[in-house]
């Protein structure tokens, strides 16, 4: 253990002052996120079959399946459903991405999700393709 003295930090202080500051000037400069960063959820409307697994597994209740039309298989007519994403409740855990066997879902590296209008975070991309 080294000897007690006052002002032990001085040397390191001047060293730090000579170095570049580590502050990220965020709104003016970009933040680089990692490759695996789990950000905003994105859906590929073409790949999505509307199976509804994501709705079941989502822990935050982001996904609701809404009926978009009818399709007949043989004699029966069944309702076709597609997911709507309320991204403002999304916790970016990635469970839906993991369980989507069609690879329709992905987490992008976008993280700026602050909006004035909550409605603008409702993603209805998957609906449009069917209509």
């Amino acid at each position: 253990m080294s000897k007690k003295r006052i002002g032990k930090a001085l040397g390191e202080m001047f060293k730090t002052a000579m170095e570049e500051p580590v502050t990220v000037k965020y709104p003016f400069g970009a933040v680089i996120v990692a490759e695996r960063f789990r950000g905003k959820l994105d859906v590929d409307p073409i790949r999505c079959t509307g199976c509804g697994v994501c709705e079941i597994v989502c822990p935050a209740g982001v996904i609701t399946m809404v009926p978009v039309g009818k399709r007949s298989i043989g004699q029966r007519e069944i309702e076709v459903k597609k997911p709507v994403f309320d991204l403002y409740t999304c916790i970016s855990c990635g469970q839906c991405v993991e369980d989507c066997r069609f690879g329709a879902l992905a987490l992008t590296n976008k993280f700026e999700l602050a909006v004035f209008d909550k409605g603008s975070l409702i993603m209805k991309k998957a609906l449009k393709v069917v209509q």
Binding site: A9, E12, M13, T16, V22, V33, A34, E35, R36, F37, R38, I91, S92, C93, G94, L107
Partner: peptide
């Protein structure tokens, strides 16, 4: 405060590492 700032500056390296491995700094999932 100087110690506080320095240590948190270095802690940022670990958080970046966690983000690179797991995808998030805090809630690693």
């Amino acid at each position: 405060d100087t110690l506080f700032m320095w240590i948190w500056k270095d802690r940022e390296h670990v958080l970046d590492l966690l983000e690179a491995i797991t995808g998030n700094r805090v809630h690693k999932s």
